[in-house]
């Protein structure tokens, strides 16, 4: 199974080799989607794949290490009323989560493909895209 997690670090937990631990100790595949760090800690968005039991154990490990863990179902949301289907977003989306339906010429948003990189947010002229993490 696959799940996306938002991890919040305080300055102490920022120094822990947590991705190594998730990979080596729990056999998880870790894909880092976003990472930022500043003077008060940091935030990371990761996608982990592996057995459900391993993911649960990995999350327990993170919590024990004082890392804030929040699973996310969606990272970016589209306001369908605001979207004009102009397509400004489709050529900058690195995962093709945003694409143009060749027939209706509507912009399709495939949330499963979205890695919440946020590139589309400021590229959307009617400001229909919102990042939730």
């Amino acid at each position: 199974m696959k799940t996306k997690l938002v991890l919040n670090f305080n300055p102490e937990s920022s120094n822990l080799p947590i991705t190594h631990h998730l990979i080596a100790e729990h056999g998880l595949l870790v894909n880092i989607l976003r990472a930022e760090i500043d003077e008060v800690g940091g935030k990371m968005v990761i996608e982990v794949s592996g057995k459900a039991d391993s993911i649960r154990k990995g999350i327990d490990y993170l919590k024990d290490a004082s890392v804030g863990v929040r699973p996310i179902k969606e990272g970016v949301r589209r306001d369908d009323e605001a979207c004009t289907h102009c397509g400004a977003c489709i050529s900058i989306c690195p995962t093709n989560a945003l694409s143009l339906d060749p027939k209706t010429r509507k912009v399709l948003f495939t949330e499963e493909k979205c890695v919440a990189c946020g590139v589309c947010i400021d590229a959307c002229p009617p400001r229909a895209m919102e990042i939730l993490i």
Partner: peptide, 23 residues
């Protein structure tokens, strides 16, 4: 078509006008 080739590079394209709304 969603892509053009410029200087040998495949470049993804975006229409900024809404063809859906035009239709």
């Amino acid at each position: 078509s969603g892509e053009v080739s410029i200087k040998g590079k495949r470049v993804p394209t975006s229409p900024l006008s809404s063809q859906y709304k035009a239709m």
